[in-house]
């Protein structure tokens, strides 16, 4: 079996064994459901059958949900010393990082799978744009992939889970809105660069149903850079 899959499977089952999975799933579905259907309420007032409200809410719940998933991944292995076992097995650092990335990504997929009833509900109420909705889910997956990479990078820097969690949020905040705010305050090439760095900008365009290669390149580069940095940190510890 491929070691990436072996590691991902082990991490997934340890999420479920330790209740983390259930707590996070309930929290994710609770918050996104609450703000989509009850507190936000405008999903019924849009006069349009779409899930844009949900995508906006999920973007924020995932923003908090993902660092909670990633924080333990490498930090805990370092703290308990099991990283030594893992790194002396017949696996590379890249396979370790990718295995852990995959386990978090599958957790997010599972969480999003549970929101499919939202889709079905709205599709029943009115004429939903299927393409745009699928594109919105794709946007959430891409955004999650990027935040998982950031989270793993944060987790590779420390052996304290709380530090890893806060660090991931701190880095995430820049992509989530600081770059966007700075961009609106600057002009010229600086504004353009900051605008291009803002994750929510790219997410917004994907979630509206516009899949541009620019956005795909952006998300994939974040994923690759994050995992590469995490891998480098593992190597550096040797």
């Amino acid at each position: 079996m491929n070691p990436i899959w072996t590691i991902a499977k082990k991490e997934l089952s340890s999420y479920f064994d330790s209740l983390i999975a259930y707590i996070l799933l309930v929290a994710f579905l609770g918050f996104s459901g609450l703000f989509t259907w009850i507190l936000g309420a405008d999903i019924f007032l849009r006069k349009q059958a779409d899930l844009l409200v949900f995508f906006g809410v999920a973007q924020w719940t995932l923003f908090f949900f993902i660092p909670a998933l990633t924080m333990r991944q490498l930090a805990e292995e370092r703290k308990t010393g099991t990283i030594e076992l893992l790194m002396t097995k017949a696996v590379t650092e890249r396979q370790i990082v990718l295995g852990k990335w995959l386990s978090c990504f599958l957790m997010v997929c599972l969480a999003l799978l549970f929101t499919l009833p939202y889709y079905l509900t709205v599709a029943n109420i009115g004429k939903i744009d299927h393409g745009a909705t699928i594109s919105g889910y794709l946007g959430l997956l891409l955004l999650s992939g990027a935040y998982i990479s950031i989270g793993l990078f944060a987790s590779s820097l420390t052996n304290n889970q709380i530090v890893a969690f806060l660090l991931a949020l701190f880095i995430g905040i820049f992509f989530q809105f600081v770059f966007g705010i700075l961009a609106s305050g600057s002009s010229g090439w600086l504004g353009e660069i900051l605008d291009g760095l803002s994750l929510s900008n790219h997410f917004d365009s994907v979630s509206r149903g516009v899949i541009d290669t620019k956005d795909l390149i952006y998300f994939f580069s974040l994923i690759i850079i994050g995992t590469l940095l995490a891998e480098r940190n593992l190597q550096k510890a040797r």
Partner: peptide, 8 residues
């Protein structure tokens, strides 16, 4: 120190 995954 024999590190192990205690929850496994």
């Amino acid at each position: 120190n024999n590190p192990l995954y205690l929850d496994m």
